[in-house]
Amino acid sequence: MAATSAATATAVAPSVSVTTRRPRFGVVSFPGSNCEQDAVNALRFIGYSAEFVWHRSTSLDGFDAIVLPGGFSYGDYLRCGAIARFSPVMEAVIAFADAGGPVIGFCNGFQVLTEAHLLPGCLIRNENLHFICKSVVLRVEDSTCEWVDLAPGTVTSLPVAHNEGNYTCDEATLARLRANHQVVLRYCEPDGSTALGGSAPNGATDDIAGICNEAGNVFGLMPHPERVTDGVNGQTQGAAFFTAIARRIERGVAR
């Protein structure tokens, strides 16, 4: 009985359709990563297979999708993500992404993706110099991103925890991001609007919280969907950032 009530107390996992192939996620572990266990837990909770990939690994064989987790890879030395970008595993990640393989990076993972030039722009120090750790409101934009299972215009909330989340790029890049529908998530007000002067807590250009590459298979975002997926803190909205790509994998359309 106790087990039943505990199960009902936690929110139910998003329904997973009958699978022909159980999606297998590889979660990269850099020295200094600290969200890889959360990511593995979240993905397993939804019902997918998730395994750690050591940063020295040079092969991603057998994985359907790759996760670059949050944390402080290599102590954030030099620049966030700058040294992780040259980890042996990153050569394989870049080849995987170039071949159309789905890659998601949140927080430090996003920083690694920009340093690896898999995503344009850069994440610099928060405008107010504070480490920001709180839940933020986000608006899902109309993008080509293959990862998001939410309709454009949806307002959701996710936790952020970062010191360098201030997305920056030049005018030409911003114009390209907009024209190609690569802006996936924007910080916004609770009603989905944008405040005068912007809604980003960190000073991000154009309130950008997440972007994808032109093809839509590589997705980087500062918020942490993996922290609000398995329901341990009463929240499961993060699952919507993994289910869409998993369905594509199940149907054999990803890659």
Binding site: L78, A82, I124, C169
Partner: peptide, 8 residues
Amino acid sequence: KLLANPVI
């Protein structure tokens, strides 16, 4: 390659 990020 590494010591500076030409983007910023």
